[in-house]
């Protein structure tokens, strides 16, 4: 387990509600409490796992961190600053530090951009370097995710890559800005087991080399066990259990965690 260093991210009593239209014609709607009084801390440099099933609120947590949603109550503190108070002109600087890797590699890449342009785009947006420097960074990023030689891939378009390759491009794109914090939302749930292992290894290597902090969102307790230092279990918008991953797996306290472990297919061989 990594040495505990400063807190990089803190959720303080976060409440998030979504309004859902229940009737098409009458305009009725109801409220869905996606996150209810959620509080936790993530330490700099750790790989923090958030485990829950669909509808638990785990993706909402990721989206709040990436500022794709705003909380209704509570504070989200990143590097000591409440992100709700970040001024408009500082938003871009925030986005450079906080990146997201999405679940669906078939949807998260712009089909009209070549792989080279896909990786260059964040550098151009954040005015990093000149053409030469960007080219070098793109090549380095490709190598860091194992898409070598880069020349074989850079001119291609997403449709010419497999799911695993696309996800590696998505990771390279997220990491090329050398962010401080990465939200990886189910990065391997659409990929087969052997390919998933490759992706986990890539993420683990980035965590060590760049000292970046990762929030790994998953429905798989087993995947979280392998990749994460600490795990939080979320159920119906509430955190029910949190602690070092091995403790959670060996000694689950909450009935929901116990149910998750019990339901996991036991491979008896």
């Amino acid at each position: 387990m990594k040495k505990q260093t400063p807190v990089i991210l803190e959720f303080e009593h976060i409440l998030k509600i979504f309004r859902v239209r229940t009737s098409f014609l009458k305009g009725d709607s109801k409220e869905v409490i996606a996150l209810n009084n959620v509080s936790f801390k993530i330490f700099k440099g750790e790989i923090f796992g958030l485990v829950g099933e669909s509808g638990s609120g785990k993706t909402t947590i990721g989206r709040l961190i990436a500022k794709l949603e705003n909380p209704d109550k509570g504070r989200l503190i990143f590097e000591g600053e409440d992100i709700a108070t970040i001024k408009r002109k500082m938003h871009k600087a925030f986005r450079r530090k906080v990146q997201m890797i999405f679940q669906d590699p078939y949807q998260s890449l712009n089909p009209y951009l070549s792989i080279y342009d896909t990786l260059c785009e964040p550098l151009i947006i954040h005015n990093i370097g000149n053409k030469m420097i960007r080219r070098d960074k793109v090549h380095l990023a490709m190598k860091s995710v194992g898409l070598t030689p880069p020349e074989d891939f850079l001119h291609r378009y997403p449709y010419q890559l497999s799911g695993g390759q696309r996800q590696r491009v998505a990771i390279a794109r997220a990491m090329i800005l050398e962010p401080a914090f990465v939200v990886a939302d189910e990065p391997t749930s659409m990929l087969d087991a052997p390919i998933s292992i490759q992706i986990f290894n890539i993420l683990a290597r980035f965590s060590q080399k760049l000292d970046a902090t990762f929030l790994f969102i998953t429905h798989s307790l087993a995947a979280a066990r392998y990749l994460c230092d600490r795990i939080a279990v979320i159920y119906k918008g509430e955190l029910v259990e949190m602690g070092p991953s091995e403790n959670i797996i060996q000694n689950p306290r909450h009935p929901y965690t116990q149910a998750l472990i019990k339901a996991h297919p036991k491979f008896r061989y």
């Binding site: 998933s196 292992i197 683990a204 798989s220 087993a222 066990r225 392998y226 797996i249």
Partner: peptide
């Protein structure tokens, strides 16, 4: 053997299995 080694369990040794390279 590789397929079995890629399977992540809740018990057993905690270490990321070694992936094999390449695509199909």
């Amino acid at each position: 053997k590789n397929l079995l080694a890629s399977y992540l369990t809740l018990d057993g040794k905690k270490a990321l299995p070694m992936p094999y390279s390449g695509d199909t």
